[in-house]
Nucleic acid binder design. Sequence first.
DNA 1: TTGAAAGCGCTAACAA
DNA 2: TTGTTAGCGCTTTCAA
Lengths: 355, 355
Amino acid sequence: MTREGGRAGGPAPRSVDVARLAGVSQKTVSRVLNGERYVSDEVRRRVLEAAGELGYRLNSAARALASGRTRSIGVVTLGTALYGPASLLIGVERAARDAGYALRVVNTLEGDPGGVVGAVESLLEQGVDGIVVSEPIDEGAVSLSVDVPVLVLGAPAAFGGTRTVATGVGAEPLARTATEHLLDLGHRTVHHVAGPERWFAARDRLEGWRSALTARGAEQPAVLVGDWSAASGHEAGRALAADGDVTAVFAANDDMAIGVIRALTEAGRRVPDDVSVVGFDDIPVAAYVTPPLTTVRQPFDAVAREGLRLLVRAIERPDADLPPVNDPPVELVVRASTAPPRLRAPSRLRAPSRG
Amino acid sequence: MTREGGRAGGPAPRSVDVARLAGVSQKTVSRVLNGERYVSDEVRRRVLEAAGELGYRLNSAARALASGRTRSIGVVTLGTALYGPASLLIGVERAARDAGYALRVVNTLEGDPGGVVGAVESLLEQGVDGIVVSEPIDEGAVSLSVDVPVLVLGAPAAFGGTRTVATGVGAEPLARTATEHLLDLGHRTVHHVAGPERWFAARDRLEGWRSALTARGAEQPAVLVGDWSAASGHEAGRALAADGDVTAVFAANDDMAIGVIRALTEAGRRVPDDVSVVGFDDIPVAAYVTPPLTTVRQPFDAVAREGLRLLVRAIERPDADLPPVNDPPVELVVRASTAPPRLRAPSRLRAPSRG
DNA sequence: TTGAAAGCGCTAACAA
DNA sequence: TTGTTAGCGCTTTCAA
């Protein structure tokens, strides 16, 4: 008898131990634990009781080896504490867990050798059943054929020749809406502080901004490029503040918008009286900075859940077609950082003043 | 011959396939892949070449089953996009990867049934070699004996009877420093907006605040409790703004500090002229809100790395003693949200004014 | 509805 | 320095 009281010390109990204690075969234990049919209630009860008594825990490595599936999903995400990627990760974890999958996470840092490809390789080696690539940056032609379904969040489908779902490319209409909001207020044009060029998310927003201006026949000012940080927004804001013609700014995320507002404030340009600013994301502090930030809300949680649902379906029904992803709803949150432009002022630079 | 060109279609190659192609035994392939000694350079080269040609990938489930180790670390973290937890996760991932470990992540949402215990159970089932519990909240007596080393970040050691390392409890001196900064400026006392009571992180900061006041013999005002969000800070700020005696506030994180400042601003109380506010964390936007926030910087990355180093050591040298963790350095970042109090004003409430 | 046998692809222990 | 032989603890046949 190898029965251990509780789970103190000794080797971990295996399913044979449970079987012996319950007086059934090892296969029957497996059936009970996997919720298979054709097990009498009586037997099921005995097995569960024995498992509880021994403190039995399934060995997922053995299961993975025998079944060829790990019931886990790998996530490639950026090693940043940015609100967007962090929120997506949370949504993905939650949805995966609800679907019965564990999560294995690999970060890629910008400039990492190997980048996304290396990260995916390492996940494949870990034997994941599916992969989520969250907000990747463009690393040029990626050739890597993967034999599990892949979900790409916030970028066009990559990884040629495989079952890939892409989603969250809906940022473009959101950016268009943000820009139109400023145009609708009466601004002649809108300046843009973009994210890093290699980010697809930055490109979508840039594209949305551009298309809104084009549709209205507005002039397209030169784009300032930041790195998502408030610091870079601040730098861009200094340049913007020096240009007396600027009356409206659309920043590609809220952090940069906050930096822009700070720079404008320091230069004596009031927001929104002199310059209107719109952000992107609706981070939790956006409503509480001064002035409260008009922004566009990204439904991170919905995007992550919807995407994961598709991924799980692709995993569990390998031959079914992958339905397209629904675009998330557009939600503009108007607060106090935007207003109509002041009456046409002389275009010469005014010194900072108290109005 | 089962040799597949490249890696298109067909079953994945196994180490025997590599062995056959390289003309060696399967065990030798295993040796090469594990970087063991006693392999001639010539053989090593041939094996590597064959592996590359076949597109061979190690099967980690098989390895885990045979070796009893997964080379992976499980992380239990909170399902929030809060800057602190997100930063810790990044640091942990990075350090784990550097040490050759993969990461398996389970989130617990506040109020989750099972909470940390359930999360740890699920990780144990996945077969991790070690566990990181990041910023747990107090769930009462936790009894769960775990047979792998555990690292607790930002809380006292839990999980009785096991090899546990705790770290990051150094928030208390940071909070004391923040409070002392305000006292040093000449404020008679400091009000505190705390985090949720069940968070150890909130308790540490509360304790630090309290001890600073006690040491100086300052009066201890009633504590306002928030939930880390700017919204809750805003609510607390409204109450604070209504009290004309308040001249200095220490908020337990930057988000709440921003909410407090917003409420004060709305009430016509100027920061820092009328009220000084200090935050905690130094989130990236802290330097760019208006006024730029005085705060205390948490070295998340250093804490995560140092902790993980200890955890890996505990995994790899089961009998060695666990050295204590070094407390992180205190770093106060003084910006523009703090100033000396105005000359002793009459203590009656003044209506909002422009000073 | 249950059980027996045969692997899954690797590492461990030992032998050569 | 290399190879042989047993498992690791499950799931998958297939048979009863």
